[in-house]
Amino acid sequence: MISLSYTPMCALSPGECGTVSDITLGGAMRRRLQDIGLIPGTSVRCVGVSPLGDPRAYEIRGAVIALRNDDAEAVHITR
């Protein structure tokens, strides 16, 4: 079996930081993330979880952006 050597971004708990290593999303969402400055090498910090656990809020380059876990799962990070 292939071992999962990465952490999905949605696994970050509030206050935890990480650095993006890969984005496996395609299409419009990949573009949208690039627009807000999320590319491999970008550091992110989880700043909060909405009351029902999804979406979560991340600090990305000075702005706070909420992403659904489905999307954030495809953003791989290293802690």
Binding site: L25, R32, L33, P55, A57, A66, D70
Partner: peptide, 10 residues
């Protein structure tokens, strides 16, 4: 299906 969603919290 739900489209992707980014929401800025100012």
């Amino acid at each position: 299906v739900p489209s992707s969603f980014t929401l800025e919290l100012p």
